[in-house]
Amino acid sequence: MKILVCMKQVPQKDAPLKLNESGTWIREDVSYEVNEPDAYALEEALRQKEKHGGEVVVITSGPARAQQVLREALAKGADRAIHLEDAAFVGLDALNTARAFAAAIKDEQFDLIFTGLQSDDYGYAQTGVVLAELLGWPHATIIMQIEKNEGGIRVKRELEAGFFQFVDMPLPAVLTIQSGINKLRYATLIGIKQAKNKPLRKVSMSEVQSALSANLQTIERLYVPQKTKQTQFLEGPASEVAKKLVDKLRNEVRVL
């Protein structure tokens, strides 16, 4: 099976975020990491390849810094990488991001495309499904298991409140992967060494531009949400805070 994995670079989970001057995004001077479900998507692709043979290709769009995500994926075992490299790619909405991916892979024949189920920064939960529609492929979302069968694949979809469902579907297909589908591997020293010699194709904005349109939506303003609930903050050294909290639990919450 030939599998493409979309991997996005996002600000690190506990990075302190500051608004940019125009108030439309955060300032770029934060540390970045791979979007969590995308790491699981890569792991799943590597496992499928180990079982059925084939190739794992990773793709990202973003400025030069995003290459780090691809390097890590190559070190873990991906065969090659595609980088849509331009700072302007991050300003695209999910539809245009998916169009750019579709344009960049038009000469390839994948059996499966994996994305994460949503990004940790913008969190649209759309890019994979939009890509499927652009390609005319079937899709399934929030996937927790993938098995090959005669007609194609059988996937396990996570539903709300602890429910699941198996779905049979033909290939090629797009799947959006949920965190926790598998256990992540670490890159090995030898993997890191080998990654340096693996192919990484760069795609410029001008190569895919004709497939894009103006964004269909606009971020007007970004801000720190207002608190609506009255919260009592308990302060002081740990031992004192512990005393204060127990006092509250006893006299206000009345659970002690």
Partner: peptide, 14 residues
């Protein structure tokens, strides 16, 4: 909500 609820954004259709 964005960034897992740390920020909020107002978004309009174009």
């Amino acid at each position: 909500q964005m960034f897992q609820g740390k920020l909020a954004a107002d978004v309009s259709f174009a």
